[in-house]
Every structure is written in C-alpha cells, then in structure tokens.
Amino acid sequence: MSAREKILVAMSGGVDSSVAALLLQRQGCDVVGAYMKNWINEENVIGHCPWEQDIVDARAVADQLGIEFHVVNLMRDYRARIVDYLLDGYARGLTPNPDVMCNREIKFGVFRQWGRDHGFTAIATGHYARRVLAKPALTDAPATYSLLEGADKNKDQSYFLALLNQEQLRDARFPIGDLPKPELRRLAHEAGLATAAKKDSQGICFIGEVKMQDFLRTFVPDQPGPIVRATDGAVLGTHRGLHLYTLGQRRGIGIPSNTDFQNYVVVGKRAADRALLVAFDGPDAPGLFCREIRVHHLSWIGAPVSTPAALEGRVRYRDPRVPLEYLPAADGGALVRFATPQRALAAGQVLALYRGEQLLGGGVYL
C-alpha cells in the first residue's frame, strides 16, 4: 500500500473502523476520518439509534490519532437509495437486504464519490474481508483485484460486499481483514482508543438498534389478511400485514402451537387475498425448503461466470458456504441448484457466490 495514498476512512464510532484508521496511519498513509450521517427520523421516533454518541466516539478516536475528521451528510441519498428500496420491497412482499445495498450504493457509492471529489485515492472501512491483487496494472489496463473472506471466519463480512464491482473494489481498503477479532481488540486497548471496549453494533445499517417490525409498522400501512394453514387451507387467525413477516419466521406469528407442541412457521405469502401461509415446522413443511432458485440482478467483482459451473453460495450472512450448480440463463439471471435443500430462501434476499474463499459476486433471489 503506497504511503502517498490519501485515504478516507468510514469511521462508524465502533472499534473495527477505529482500528482500521489506526493501522493505515501506522502504514504511513495520509488518513482522514469521516462519519456518514445516513438516517435521522425526527417525525416518528422509533427505538434507539445512537448516532450522536457514535459521532462523539468516532471524533474522539480521530483526535487521539491526530487526524482530520468530517461528518458527511448523506441523508437524502440514503432515503432515496436505501430506505425507499427497503420500504418498497416489503410493501411488495419481498425481504430486502439493506446492509448489502448500503455497501454498494452508499459506502462505495455516494460516499466513495464524495471522497474522490475531495481528493482521496481510496475509501477504507472496518469490514472483515480481504482485497488481494489478482492481476497487476498494464500500460493499457488498470490492476484487477479479488475479494476474499476475512481471515477471522467468525467475523467474516464478505457476504455484505457481494454486489460490489471491480471499479468499487479498486478504491476499497479493508485494513482489518487479516486480523482475528481478539487481536483487533488488543491493538485498540494498547493504543488506548476510546472505542476499545465498545460493544459491536447489532443494528441494521441505518436504523440502529431498532426491530425491523417496529420500523415497518411506522412507515408501511397495515393491510390485514388471513393466516392460513398451507396443508389444508384452514384459517387460523388474522395478521396485520404481510410485510411484517418473512419466510421461515417462527416467533410472533400470533397463533398458538398445537397440543403436541408443534410450532408454526411462515412458509409463504399469497398476494391475491393477502394470506399468510403457515405450516408446522419441520423438513416436510411445504415451501420451507428448496433445492432450486432463480437469481437476478447479478453483479460480478471480476469476470462474469457465463457458463455452467460448480460454485459455492452463502444464502445468509451467518450461514456457511454450500455447494451449488450455477446455470446462467438467457435473460441475464441464473438458475441455482443446491447440493442440499436450503431453508427459508425469502424473495428479495441476496445470494453471495464463491469459489472457495474468493467472493465472485452475487444476485437477488426471485
């Protein structure tokens, strides 16, 4: 990494991005920190989003490192590119992934552009992922890079980067990708960083420590409908809106288990009569498990996979990679056949595609 690089670090107020800034500074880079001000809902206060404290913490670390610090207002772009995307998806019965879209559209989209407009050569984040040189720059072509899982498999965040492209990856830096979390904490404590003991955030990228159902109830009108048992069509109750449920959900459905203590699970949504379809949880629940899905809106970090291939996929952030057969389709999407049935693949979610540790790209379930 060139010491002449001027790098803008996305400092969230957490320990990961704090150590990212620390490591870049130690490598001799010209480092500037910035907090992305993404979402403040002043009309309808819901839950707890500690953005003010996060700015205080990020600024405190910047002061300790002796680096410049900015607060970059991206609220308008965030509303248009992430919040509206999320609300529209849930209103249409989908289960969108705002964290994946946040990285493509905001961190490595408008925030990256803000950095370029202000003379920065790269954007750094606290993601547990690794960027490695795949092909050196030639006189007629820039260097190309591959994206690998983070070295700490318990913290790997490559899934959230599945929709990045090569141009975005060229400008990306992931300084902590080779570190295990305990080592990162040790570095933060040794440096006396203000965030060294701060707990990791568990919130969605823009609404903080807020339950998704509470967020949706605030912005999407209720559209009640029947709760229907998929196996026999029996009506078991009513729900407030299909947007408040997702495939595979077991808690909060609003109907009791049966006398044998079998729990119901959401297995589908029927738009025609706004029916929420449920069944007793288990491998025989209709629609809960599938071996085959279609994906669209494919995005590739390097060259697209244009012929049938044996790959691996991660269907959710915390799930392991699983073997699959990838079959490109004429419409630009693909058919994916899993080696083993996968549970609760909700339309609108993201499938990340891998070849071993290397993240190739991703697409959205149909």
Rank of each mutant, 00 (worst) to 15 (best):
L360F: 05
R251K: 11
L138H: 10
V266H: 05
L147C: 04
P182D: 06
G282F: 03
Q168D: 00
V228N: 06
L244V: 07
A330I: 09
R318S: 14
E149C: 07
V220D: 14
D222R: 10
I293S: 04
P142Y: 04
D178Q: 10
R59G: 12
L147Y: 00
Q64F: 00
A352S: 01
A346H: 15
A329K: 09
W114I: 09
Q358I: 00
K199T: 13
T125F: 06
S306W: 07
R343P: 01
A122F: 12
I255F: 04
D77Q: 13
L298W: 11
L298T: 10
G356Q: 02
L298N: 11
D77M: 04
E312S: 14
V71P: 04
T144L: 08
Q249L: 04
D140A: 13
P142L: 00
H48S: 15
P50Q: 03
C290W: 02
T307E: 15
V336W: 12
Q349I: 09
E312K: 10
V210W: 06
V315Q: 03
V266Q: 02
Q166A: 11
P96F: 01
V315R: 14
Q53L: 12
H243Y: 06
G348I: 12
T259V: 15
M101F: 15
V110R: 07
E52D: 10
N165D: 15
G252S: 03
A172Q: 08
A344S: 09
H189W: 09
L184W: 07
F120S: 04
M36A: 13
G282I: 02
G89N: 07
D140S: 09
G254I: 02
Y354A: 00
L298Q: 14
P50D: 15
R173M: 12
G282S: 10
D260G: 13
N165T: 14
P341W: 03
A310S: 15
Q202A: 10
P98Q: 08
D214T: 07
L8I: 00
L311E: 01
R291F: 02
R173G: 11
R343V: 01
P256G: 00
L87C: 03
D214N: 06
A330R: 15
R92W: 11
G332E: 07
G13C: 09
R270M: 13
Q202H: 05
T139G: 15
P224S: 09
N41A: 09
V19Q: 01
D319I: 10
A344Q: 12
F261Y: 06
L65F: 00
G66C: 06
D54E: 07
E183P: 10
L242E: 07
I106W: 08
E42W: 08
G282H: 11
E209A: 04
S17Q: 05
G287P: 08
R185E: 02
T246D: 11
G361V: 03
E52M: 09
L86I: 13
F108L: 13
S12C: 00
P226L: 12
G362Y: 11
G287C: 03
A344H: 02
N97A: 15
S12T: 07
H239F: 04
L247G: 04
T307S: 13
P308H: 01
D16Y: 08
R318W: 12
G362T: 12
P323F: 05
T340R: 10
S18L: 00
P286V: 02
T125R: 06
W39Y: 15
G93E: 07
D140M: 06
P182E: 08
E68S: 08
T125S: 14
L164A: 10
